[in-house]
Every structure is written in structure tokens, then in C-alpha cells.
Amino acid sequence: MASEGARASTETVLAPASGVRQFWRRLRVQRAALVAASVVALLVLLALAAPLLSAVEGQDPTTYHPDLVDSARGGVPVGTFGGLSADHWLGVEPQTGRDLFARLVYGARVSLGVALAATVVEVTVGLVMGIAAGYGNRWVDQALSRFTDVVVALPLMVMSLALLAIVPSGFPRPVLVAVVIGLIGWGSIAKIVRAQTLTLKQLDHVAAARLSGWSSWRIARRELLPALAAPVITYAALLFPVNISAEAALSFLGAGVKPPTPSWGQMLTSANVWYQAAPQYLLLPAGLLFVTVLALTVLGDGVRRALDPRAASRLSVGTGRKKEARA
């Protein structure tokens, strides 16, 4: 059992190995994607090192500092530039006096973590539904495809907002947000997986595997999944920034991650009230959101170009392409 599993894993790693190398080669030549990848790496590092960084600063994201806000003026941070000081590197949050730097770096964890988890949910559900629809018989396909169409037609924002309201509040909020975003957003992955599976099913080696009596599960794992990796990774990379936006939006509306857990979207809820006294309270979460989503989008675009042979061939004839359009 164990040896069989080990053999399977080396095989699946070996088979697309040249593909992985080719992927890196194609990704490396894209300067924008490389810059974006470094920015993303930096953000991930920031999120992972959040406890360390706030420990160095000597603050934590949840302690109230009522002495640092002027309650007579509605909670404006005391001091210049929103309470900027050696103790509070980026100032403090209006009204509560919580440390802004600590909340921002911990917010990076929530933002990236929730979006990653939501993407994993989308990929998992999308793969299962897509393979089942593409590999199953006509009725299974009809039923699952219709269902997918319906899920795609559900408005993401409206639906998740409504869903988050009726779930009991006992659940850990970030997990809940990730699951809700994931359960509404898997449609596009299921569609592409189904289409690919339909094509793969016709191929000789899959037919041979089926004729030699492999179970559907084994065929899915050994024959379909490796071939599905490229399109699924592409879609996942493009969905990831969308999920970052979705989490931020839900938290902005007060339906997502709730205080005391910090989230960039949630900080922006009341930021416009304080922009004169503490501009960084608006600009920093907004800027971080912008940079994160932009970097992930550019990276996702780069991954798509590196994985999609059609886009890649267009990429490689870049100079010839220019000539043809100018002709």
C-alpha cells in the first residue's frame, strides 16, 4: 500500500518535471511577473513574521491604549500624525488606541490566509465537481453542469453577505468567511475542469487505463489530475486576488472578519471619518490592499502566460507580432 503510494507520487512528480522547469523558464522571462512575485513573497514574509515584528515593536494588535486617544475630541489619536511615536511606529487606531503597525501586519495574515483557504476550497470543490461531471455518464454530467451554471449565476457579494448573516456566530470567523467565499466561487474551476476532462477522456492512454480495469478513482488520480494541474493552477492564481478583494469587501461591510481580529477591509470601514487626523489609518490599509491585489493579479497573469501554451506561443513571437500589427 505504502510502496504503491510512493511509486505513484514519484511518477506524478517525474512526469510533469520537465513541465515545471519549462514553467519556471517561461515565468522568469516576464519582468512584471518577477517583480510581482517578489512583492508577494515580501507580503507573505510580513504575514508569517507578524508576531515577531510586533514583538520587536513591543506592541500587540489587540491591547487598547485609551491614554493615546483624545476622548474629548471623539477619539482622535493624541500627538502628531495620528499618534506616531517610537513606541507606535505607524501611530494608533482612532478611538481604541490599538497599535496600527501590529494590526496591519496581523491583518496581512488574515487577508492572505482567508484568501488562500478560500482558493483551496474553490479548487477542491471545483475539481471534484468538474471531474465527476466530465467523467460521469450523461445524466450525472447534465445534473452537475446545470448546478454549476446556477452557482455561477449566484451573485458572489450578495450571496456571501446574506450567508454570513445567518450562520451562528460561534464559528471562528475567518474560517467561516473563507468557506463561504469558496463555496460560492468554485464554478469557474468546475467548468474548465469538466471541459478538460471531456477532452482527456477521449485520449488513448486514459481509454487504455479504463479498459485495463483501473478504478475511476485511480484514473482520476493518476491520469486526469496531472493533466489538469496546469489549467487549475492558472485559475487558482487568478482567483486568489479576487478572494483577497472579497474578504476585504465583506469585512468592510461588517459581515466578514470581526474585531478584535484585524483585517485591512475592516479598518477601512471607518477610515474616511479620520482621514484628516490620521491619514495613515486610511492610506495604509488601502495601499496594502491595492499592492497585494495588484501584485497577485500580475503574478496570476504571468502564471497564465507561462502555463497556457497558446498564450506562451504568442508571448514568444512578441517581436514578430509587433511587426504584423504595424504592417
Binding site: G265, L282, A286, V298
Partner: peptide
């Protein structure tokens, strides 16, 4: 691309302010 990537409330907030 930057416009596409930005959540609407971020652009809206900044524009409004």
C-alpha cells in the same frame, strides 16, 4: 490592470476623501 485589481471601495474611498 491596476483599476481591475483594486476593490471598488478602496478606489471610491480614496476618490471621496
Amino acid at each position: 490592470l491596476a483599476g481591475w485589481a483594486t476593490p471598488v471601495f478602496v478606489i471610491g474611498l480614496l476618490l471621496m476623501v
